[in-house]
Amino acid sequence: MSKKILIAAALAVAVGLPAGAMATPEEDRIQFRNHFQDRFSEVPLEEYPNGVYAIDPVGRENWEAIEEFPPYEPFIDTGRDMWEKPFANGKTYADCFPDGPGIAHKYPHWDKDKGMVMTLPLALNNCREANSEEPLKYKKGPINDLLSYIAFESRGEVTNVVVPEDDPRALAAYEDGKKFYYTRRGQLNFSCAHCHVQNGGLVLRTETLSPSLGHTTHFPVYRSKWGTVGTLHRRFTGCNKQVRAKPFEAHGEEYRNLEYFLTYMSNGLELNGPGARK
């Protein structure tokens, strides 16, 4: 108990949350959003899903040119074929996801039966396995096609992560993700928040650091550096590695809870995936 309070207090200092009682997710989210809106007072809220291009006019010009011939388009088409093609047993993804394909805004969510955060890629693989298909790899490869199609079909939906109050394990998962976000890691000793909250908008070598508000709206993302589309957990892995920390397993508990917290922070923002970044 006292340890938990200490951690909460440390977090409070880091992001300027009011000290004292542990903040609710909703209080966290308002603080988080205000931090960026104070810092970039000229940037309208609906710009944050555009990541670094919301605050970097030079990068933005390039990006707008790229978006004229979106590099992620072929992945959407391949993903549509995957969605429609029956499994060996004759069923399709639509049998698992009757509301599909535009379902990205329903994830991540708290799965009460399983007692864990359910992410979209994990749900897709659960569907495959229930239909005797091999699960897809989580960071690179065909899962990105499927996710690109789903993201595209979900455009315009609004981020709306819920931490249900009737299950304390959900709040614990959220708190776990939050703690991850503010904990220093790796030989270089950075937390996620150091780069994307404290220093968002500043320049690390030649790279302008994006604000974390809006970080989850546009995945999967086509990155010029990757030359392809990659998942959110691939990005987490990269950001862990660059501080010389050991990355965690994609869609393992740590990254799932991180995604839960981080997506909650963007509640109210529109989905606009797949995205394109440099």
Binding site: L188, L204, R205, Q242, K278
Partner: peptide
């Protein structure tokens, strides 16, 4: 860019 910190 952020190979800043990587080891290539």
């Amino acid at each position: 860019m952020i190979e800043t910190f990587s080891r290539k």
